[in-house]
Design a protein around this nucleic acid. Sequence first.
DNA 1: TTTTATTGTCACATATTTGTCACCCATTCG
DNA 2: CGAATGGGTGACAAATATGTGACAATAAAA
Lengths: 226, 226
Amino acid sequence: MRALIVDDDRVLADIVAFALRREGFEIIQAHDGASGLRRWEAENPDLIILDVNLPEIDGFTFCRQIRERSTTPIIMLTVRGEDNDIVRGLEIGADDYIPKPFSPRQLVARAFAVLRRAGQMATPTPHQAGDLQLAANRREARIGYGDPIPLTPLEGKLLTYLMINAGQVLTADAIIDYVWGPQSGDRDMLRQLVHRLRDKIEPDPGSPTYRKTVPGLGYGLIADND
Amino acid sequence: MRALIVDDDRVLADIVAFALRREGFEIIQAHDGASGLRRWEAENPDLIILDVNLPEIDGFTFCRQIRERSTTPIIMLTVRGEDNDIVRGLEIGADDYIPKPFSPRQLVARAFAVLRRAGQMATPTPHQAGDLQLAANRREARIGYGDPIPLTPLEGKLLTYLMINAGQVLTADAIIDYVWGPQSGDRDMLRQLVHRLRDKIEPDPGSPTYRKTVPGLGYGLIADND
DNA sequence: TTTTATTGTCACATATTTGTCACCCATTCG
DNA sequence: CGAATGGGTGACAAATATGTGACAATAAAA
């Protein structure tokens, strides 16, 4: 399940992306109408989250152009109170709207609702970092297009946490808290768990591709760059 | 600037964490009252984001226990409409409340407001002096747009201290106190540590760009000018 | 119950980080 | 000028942290 987010406000776009990614969406972003259209053509997403306020090509025009060629579900982000916008958006063919400000949960709920209505809703695709994917619900990891790698429950939790915070360094304590809950788990267990996860996921355990260690601090997952 | 998030709803906690991290906060998480208290004690954060609905120790109890010992700013997350909760929370000593659902932006705005009110608000974490940057949370330094340079725990502390007081000259004793804590550490160790840090950070150790030495006194970091 | 998968515990190998020390060089001051 | 002082440097040892494998304990499945 892949979503295209078209919003010139990058902060907001990132928050939306984050919320949807959590739910297993693969995210494509564009920050203006023109590139949004290009990405839509190229990527053919299952869902579009669209801000009405866009530079150059505005949201309505964008929406109309999509509708001329496809029925891809569209959720519009509008400023609260601009009822005209809402009406106009729905007339043009948007599937739903969300007034700003909104909670990520609300957004996610609407997204699923719209997809359900549209009769789509396959299995959500997993978290992602680089070419490492995680299907949290089936507890499987996969590298690129390789075979899925089954994970144990704890390994799944660990990887989930790392992927949610890909690119960041997490303290050992925080990870332990997340995986084992408070009051349980110690560094030995974490070390062991990391070891086992790495054995499965790193092609060459010697030179870690995905995971990095910061001595005295904790672990992190390497994001796209760095 | 570091924030402790106490919330058993991990999804929500992660979203809050994400929003605050964007703004340069270092995040500490706990998922129940007991571990929250421990983390608070251990980490001494600048701000607490607290969900009223917690298992075992509820938010109000938690808040009261903190207030018995400290004035760390607390923002409570309440369910919309539970006005009793809000009143009760503020009576007990919470600094602000945010009804769920809320937008991340709202949260960030309130967080800054509360901190400003509390007269805190130092520089949010990414420290900077000239074109030298320090990402304390991942313990990496970086010069301009160069590659990040990993630091050891002690090097990180030293650089943090120097950057906080960039442009000032710090006595050797003060630095030693900060890095090793009182009663430990001597001048030799500091000399050695400075040496190592400089090796990593100064492109040409011969002519220091960032660090300066005042004989008989201590060290300082050279600020933008001078 | 037996079997199997998963997780916890421990001992040990490595790697990293830190502390110690001896020696050098520069500056200051008698 | 030459000793005394203080900082800079490198080598090495000590202390810590992390990686790894073996195996026991436990939970889940057959």
